[in-house]
Computed example of a mutant assay.
Amino acid sequence: MHDQQARIKSHIESHQHMAGALLPLLHAIQDDLGYIPEECYGNIAKALNLSVAEIHGVVTFYHHFRIHPPGKHVLQVCRAESCQAMGSQALETHVKSSLGIDFHQTTSDGAITLEPVYCLGNCACSPAIMLDDQVYGRVSSKQVDRLVAEAKEAV
């Protein structure tokens, strides 16, 4: 935990004098830790001369930010219009059912965190998902099941 606090402090120090520092700082913390611990809101607020409520408001407004550690793998299902037109809602329902979780939740084994995303820029190959940093297009329920099984084996 001390290491985590030191890493957060380092990010705050490297961002606090930037104009418009809050979003780049939050991204840096999440990129490093995988989430933004609520315990660091006070330090961020003090460094940027903002209120804790403002920090909380920004973190909870943007779907990208997490307040809890993610699973070993993050599965994002695109919910943009093109993917919806090509069946992402059925895919989303299947994934939620097969994993036994909803968006912003992690499987009980800690392997997969499920998140919505509102465009992966892969509209020509809808429906699309992203598993960790890899985008997959024209995805079927079977393909998602296979990718999840492979990810869980790698855990």
Rank of each mutant, 00 (worst) to 15 (best):
T107Q: 06
D133H: 12
A6C: 03
K46T: 14
E153H: 12
A53Q: 09
R79H: 12
T93G: 09
D32R: 13
C78W: 07
S14P: 07
V148M: 12
E153K: 13
C83K: 07
E81N: 13
T60I: 07
A47I: 00
S51H: 09
L99N: 06
V74G: 02
H63G: 08
V95E: 03
A80F: 02
I55G: 01
S14I: 02
H64C: 02
S97Q: 10
Q89S: 07
S108N: 05
V52Q: 14
A154T: 09
Q84P: 02
A151H: 07
A47F: 00
L22W: 02
R66Q: 04
T106N: 06
G71Q: 10
Q143A: 04
S82L: 09
S14W: 01
I129Y: 01
S10I: 04
Q4V: 06
G20F: 00
K9Q: 13
R7C: 00
H56N: 11
D109I: 00
S88T: 15
K152C: 12
L25E: 06
L23A: 11
G34C: 09
S98G: 08
L48N: 11
I55M: 01
A124P: 00
N43V: 03
L25G: 08
D3T: 10
L120T: 04
T106E: 02
N43A: 08
L99K: 00
Q143I: 07
H68Q: 14
I67W: 01
H73D: 02
V135D: 08
M1K: 13
E81G: 03
A47S: 12
L25M: 11
S141Q: 15
P69S: 11
L26A: 00
E38V: 12
G137Y: 00
F61V: 03
V135G: 05
I112T: 02
A151F: 08
H63E: 10
D31R: 14
F103Y: 13
Q134C: 09
I8E: 15
K96R: 15
P24I: 05
S10Y: 09
R79T: 15
Q30I: 08
E39G: 05
R138E: 10
V59F: 03
G20H: 03
R7I: 01
P127S: 03
M18Q: 15
L91V: 00
P37K: 11
V77Q: 02
L48K: 12
N122S: 05
G110Q: 05
G110T: 04
C78Q: 03
D133L: 06
H15G: 01
C83H: 04
V77Y: 00
E150A: 12
L50R: 13
I112K: 05
R79G: 13
A151M: 08
A111P: 05
E38Q: 13
C83R: 03
P37A: 07
A21G: 03
L91A: 01
C119Q: 02
L75S: 06
S140T: 15
H2N: 07
K9W: 06
L23I: 15
E54Q: 14
